[in-house]
């Protein structure tokens, strides 16, 4: 039997209705449709029976005794292996100082001092190079990287495929500028990594020197569609500009 797209849609809506995921208008619409179409009402009955059955037959069992203890032990052990004062502890104390001296939100601070954002992002880039993984999600597939950001930050970034241009995607991570989590994509050129951070709403100010060199890293900043992009890498400024150009003009977007 060939079902039309609108039938498929109705079935999805019936499921969402039973799961309490519909807004009142859609819920009302699908409830009326079920009242008029016996097949749809039957589908709803079967789903309810299935949910009831799962609920009755498959009680949720807890994790086996001892698992929590082993996890806490493993985590504690992993912490102890870090020799000396960890950067996190150091970071915490510095962050407190930073918070005390800056009373306003990052947007105000950031828009007044774009170089501060650059400094922060260069630090993130350097730290990522020292971490076991420079990214939190490892994938060369932009279809994997983009959804990973859903729920972690407010807006998923633009992710393009530049593998053919010799800038393969390595993955992504969440960095924090001020108090705002932002998306950072990591691309690669030969053995060099490029961190590309998208800072929304930070569109009014630009670096006075662009690209700019900070502690040996080149920082290139540009603005597209109200999003401020910051590319950081130790590749040559010319190559970084080539990367930016390719990113901005690429059509292979999600």
């Amino acid at each position: 039997m060939n079902r039309s797209n609108s039938d498929d849609r109705s079935v999805l809506l019936v499921n969402a209705y039973l799961d309490g995921e519909l807004d009142p208008a859609n819920a009302l619409g699908i409830a009326q449709q079920m009242a008029e179409e016996p097949a749809l009402a039957a589908e709803a009955e079967r789903i309810k029976a299935l949910q009831q059955l799962i609920h009755e037959r498959l009680p949720r069992q807890g994790a086996p005794g001892g698992l929590r203890g082993r996890i806490e032990e493993a985590v504690g052990g992993s912490r102890r292996r870090r020799a000396g004062p960890s950067w996190r502890a150091l970071a915490a104390s510095i962050a407190v100082t930073a918070m005390v001296t800056s009373s306003s939100t990052w947007l105000v601070v950031g828009s007044r001092q774009p170089t501060m954002i650059a400094d922060t992002l260069v630090s993130d880039h350097i730290r990522s190079l020292m971490a076991p993984e420079p990214v939190d999600v490892v994938s060369s597939d932009r279809h994997t990287v983009k959804p990973w950001f859903n729920g972690r930050i407010a807006n998923s970034p633009r992710v393009v495929d530049l593998a053919k241009e010799d800038f393969p995607l390595v993955g992504g991570r969440v960095d924090v500028v001020g108090r705002t989590p932002v998306s950072t994509l990591v691309y690669r050129r030969a053995k060099h990594l490029i961190s590309l951070t998208a800072v929304p709403a930070e569109s009014r100010f630009a670096l006075d020197r662009n690209p700019r060199n900070i502690d040996g890293y080149n920082v290139l900043q540009w603005i597209d569609h109200g999003v401020s992009y910051w590319a950081i890498s130790d590749i040559a400024p010319k190559e970084l500009e080539e990367f930016a150009q390719l990113f901005r003009t690429s059509q292979t977007e999600l």
Partner: peptide, 22 residues
């Protein structure tokens, strides 16, 4: 001063990694 400030904001709730993990 900026070097460690950014990711450290996760610690602004005053918890160390272990406390956050718990």
């Amino acid at each position: 001063m900026q070097l460690f400030a950014s990711r450290a904001h996760g610690s602004m709730d005053g918890l160390d990694d272990n406390a956050r993990f718990r």
